[in-house]
Design a protein around this nucleic acid. Structure first.
Lengths: 199, 199
DNA sequence: CGATTCTTTGAAAACAGTCAATCTGTGTGG
DNA sequence: CCACACAGATTGACTGTTTTCAAAGAATCG
């Protein structure tokens, strides 16, 4: 299992055998079955979680039961509820698995030590955060400036692999539109494409 | 001018006289007049900008001329277009001043050196980033799950001081609703409050 | 197969956007 | 000090989009 992480990690920077061994010694491996929760609202997000295989989803429930998805986390990416992880406060979000998922995780204390011990890891982590932050700014602009159709279009082109793997109603609750609207937007788009190919 | 930054900075962590002197030696002071641009779309965001006094706004223009506001930056906060600053690529955003504004700024190279030389600054900068990131996640959830009225309500309670200082149509383009809708939402809310106080 | 989950559809209602006009307040120049 | 311009806020009528609700088709899975 850890080999997957090694492959991922070494593609970004040079790590010595010892450093990898060290990370491995602190890592915990876990399998989360489809529909199983990894983190429940109210709990504290205590681990930095690397997804080796599968697909996680971070989402929030409103009182009326409606779901709003903050993010999808496929293999070779990280799942953490930052607010909870950084401040050790209860999470407002749930994390569950949309597919059977294998993860490697480290407690916050251990991961902090790793970052201190291995500068490459800290640099890497910092860069990841930057990228995530940039992406979330982009998403905000999308939210406030795009039409439903543009949002859908944008999702498909930005996350084609995820799009293939998640049900449409989840795309809808990631974008903040109703599933019916998403259906109709798809129809419109489909008709347009046909028109273009005929013309 | 620099004293304001000192006061801000020392309220967060201990800095020696020498460290402050060092930061001061690399700092540039600038005044941006109301309606003046600090950064133009297409330029690279080369500075970390601290607002001493006044109010900046980061926004994007669509082809049709409509504005979408990413953020407001009042005194004692930082204005940077991260994507551009980090990767030294052209900015998609404009930054302008909504009030006459005094800023202190450092080039990226200098600020990187400062962070290396003064661990407190790095730690502080990291914490700021975390907070910004958390806030942007919150905003995303707001965008996708709140009604126009809830968004407005949320803005007032989250940023009461900014609310007092910016025109309503800018609140609207921060929230992603039309200014007319915002007006009507306000009326509705106002009527509700009156009803409550009568009942 | 039967059950569940997912997607689509139709019709009605709620909501938000657009356009054009008006109103308000502020500030500038004569 | 007044008049005018200008930015901002509001209003009404209309249009268009999105949601909601209820129902019915697909698809998937044990």
């Amino acid at each position: 299992m850890f080999e997957y992480f090694e492959a991922y990690m070494t593609s970004y920077g040079e790590l010595t055998k010892d450093e990898l061994k060290y990370m491995r010694s602190l890592a915990t491996v876990k399998r989360i079955r489809r529909r199983q929760l990894l983190l429940k609202e109210g709990e504290v997000s205590r681990h930095k979680v690397f997804v080796v295989k599968g697909l996680l989803r971070t989402y929030r429930l409103k009182d009326d039961g409606s779901e709003y998805i903050l993010r999808f986390t496929p293999e070779n990416s990280w799942s953490v509820v930052h607010e909870s992880y950084n401040n050790q406060i209860p999470s407002k979000y749930n994390i569950d698995a949309l597919e059977d998922t294998d993860v490697i995780m480290w407690t916050r204390e251990d991961f902090d030590q790793i970052m201190t011990a291995i500068p490459v890891i800290r640099a890497f982590s910092d860069r990841l955060k930057e990228n995530n932050y940039d992406a979330s700014q982009e998403r905000i602009m999308m939210n406030i400036s795009y039409t439903a159709e543009e949002k859908y279009e944008n999702f498909i082109t930005s996350f084609p692999e995820i799009f293939k793997r998640v049900p449409l109603h989840m795309v809808a609750s990631y974008l903040g539109v109703s599933r019916e609207t998403l259906t109709r937007v798809r129809q419109a788009r489909f008709r347009q494409q046909k028109d273009n190919s005929i013309g």
